[in-house]
Design a protein around this nucleic acid. Structure first.
Lengths: 215, 215
DNA sequence: GTCTATATAGGGATAGAC
DNA sequence: GTCTATCCCTATATAGAC
């Protein structure tokens, strides 16, 4: 609980700096030497704390995974609603943003590391199933009208857009707005997937919320 | 027109083999030596035909771009219809499939090569605007009901799903169905984005078509 | 825990003979 | 057009002193 101003441990500094460099420049362009340089430590020192680069990536991924697991928990003990969808999306996008290096060169990283692949795949599946669960909840609550077939396709599309929106935007972006401003637009895009299935009231509420969010 | 059975020129064989290796293993894992090995030619010979690896990639990209430009032509001189949407999607997915290496490690490749980035960005924009043009056509023909705002969000989502569907599937795929079978599912996913905005008849026609396509 | 020095390996690319 | 030989460079990773 107490947090005396001790200097951060080297191991933690390595993790933190790696994340920042990976996010800024892309994981393939950042070597262990770059990380060591940035921290003003020797490459040898870095290898004292981590066996190799993949171990750093794995540790970062685990942080990411833990947060994603939290975000993707289907609300229990009560009926899901639009607020859940909202919260779910917001947390997912923020989390992806903070570990965005994982999403660039994704295939490359996953093909190097089977464990990573398995876990990442699990996250995708949870994205789909959480989206589906919320949709079913909305249907049950009479807020939404959709067939089972609709929901299956819809939740897959939600997962795709939620997963790749930031990549899509980072390609289109003129370097002007390279910031995290696109997160809001991403949430809007996903919500607009859901909107057509919502009944009158909820749909209008959503439109209202979306416009506020975009501005 | 005539096609005598001359052996393929080395330059062309390099291009063809590179595409295959890139698609199979990912561009970052394939070195110029690998390509030369596969062709049973020397690395030096490869560099006689191409200044460097990026030149090969650029040539492959240009092939891809030319085909994509054709696919993304908005039908002129008549009202777009659902068939146009169908054809548009089909061509886009096939094309992405044949040059899928471009879509893995996309960010990495684009950050290495500014020219590639510009052109790829242009393709994305065209995906969005072609989708929007077709939607407007459908609305004009009374087949679809959607506001301008709807269409803007919808066509962005169409572009995202059409662009990243294969990536999404290749992560989720158990290595069983690693084939091009997912293309059909991709087309279905995109069409299901459009479906909620279609009016009665067109919507049912679409459902019919989708089910045939999936089976 | 941290450093310096270094081994190892591999990829990109060129020179010059044939 | 093609090959052999080779150079340069960079990245990962280790050894051993401090």
């Amino acid at each position: 609980m107490s947090d005396p101003p001790q200097p951060m441990k080297t191991r933690d500094r390595i993790v933190q700096t790696s994340l920042q460099l990976f996010n800024d420049c892309g994981e393939p362009r950042i070597t262990t030497n770059h990380i060591a340089d940035e921290l003003d430590i020797s490459p040898g020192n870095l290898y004292y704390h981590f066996r190799n680069k993949d171990d750093i990536i794995w540790l970062l991924f685990q942080q990411f995974e833990r947060r994603m697991d939290t975000a993707l928990q289907v609300p229990e003990r009560r009926v899901p609603n639009m607020e859940d969808m909202w919260l779910y999306l917001h947390l997912v996008f923020e989390n992806i943003w903070e570990y965005r290096f994982l999403y660039r060169d994704l295939d490359n990283m996953l093909s190097r590391n089977k464990k990573l692949r398995t876990h990442f795949c699990r996250i995708l599946e949870r994205k789909v199933s959480t989206a589906a669960a919320i949709c079913k909840g909305l249907v049950g609550a009479g807020v939404m009208t959709a067939t089972t077939e609709n929901i299956i396709a819809l939740s897959r599309n939600i997962a795709v857009v939620a997963t790749y929106w930031l990549n899509f935007q980072s390609i289109r972006a003129t370097h002007a707005s390279n910031d995290s401003d696109d997160l809001g637009l991403g949430v809007y895009q996903v919500l607009s997937l859901v909107a057509p299935f919502l009944n009158g009231d909820a749909r209008q509420l959503l439109q209202q919320l979306s416009r506020e969010y975009l501005s």
